[in-house]
Design a protein around this nucleic acid. Structure first.
Lengths: 130, 130
DNA sequence: CGGTATCCGTTTGGATACTG
DNA sequence: CAGTATCCAAACGGATACCG
């Protein structure tokens, strides 16, 4: 997996495997919103408008489409309580969403670290300027 | 991190942190091609056209833009050997790309597992039909 | 080879209004 | 509230031609 310099080094078959698997993954959870919606729902079940508020910047139309996609792919369940008046709709993560734990953890860690790196770089830039 | 049913359960601050960190991550490595290009380059340094062949479906224009982006963000280095005639250009991963190892591993594993799940589901569907 | 420029159809997505 | 329909502008991206 790693070469003599500590760099990731893939053999041709490993590379093929990675390209196709990561391609499959991006196909279902790629895009700007899917993972964010899943993260927002891991805070707890949410109604449509709550969810829209939690996922900053998403429009109702896009949220609606993304939810349909996520439901189709088994990540999200749409729960309707028709006894309530007016009817209450809640979105809930399925068990299948749990399989994303590692992916989410990795992205979370990387994103946090990356932000720190960027901030350090920009602090250094300012020191050089001054 | 997990609730009583084994589901991922984020507190409000954890959710905020995840949303912003994952948002940062997707901002730089999101999109259809960035990770694939990085994976292709972990097989070894490549010239432009080789890279285009390795990353199936990408057009020269898009590859060109993506490479500029990846270079700007410190994932890729463009190496020019001007002694050669005609000049040879190679793309190489930087050390910073190594920080993506966990992310790539997680996506690779998840993607492979997901494909298997899908295939099983469709096999079952066929049994039910028959 | 390693790209870039241009043209142009397709897709995306915001804003707004509207429905049950 | 929980969306959907419509309109429209901007972004995306393929095809092609072209350059050093």
């Amino acid at each position: 997996m790693k070469d003599i310099n500590g760099k990731i080094r893939l053999s041709a078959p490993e590379c093929n495997s990675a390209l196709s698997a990561v391609g499959d993954a991006l196909y279902v959870i790629g895009g700007k919103w899917k993972l964010r919606i899943i993260i927002a729902l891991s805070e707890g079940n949410k109604r449509f408008n709550d969810l829209q508020r939690r996922v900053e910047g998403i429009s109702a139309r896009v949220l609606s489409n993304e939810l349909k996609d996520l439901e189709m792919n088994g990540f999200v369940k749409r729960m309707v309580d028709s006894k309530a008046k007016p009817v209450v709709v809640q979105y809930e993560l399925t068990d299948y969403s749990n399989t994303l734990e590692e992916v989410l953890r990795a992205l979370h860690n990387w994103g946090r670290q990356h932000r720190e790196n960027i901030m350090q770089r920009s602090r250094k830039m300012k020191l050089v300027e001054a």
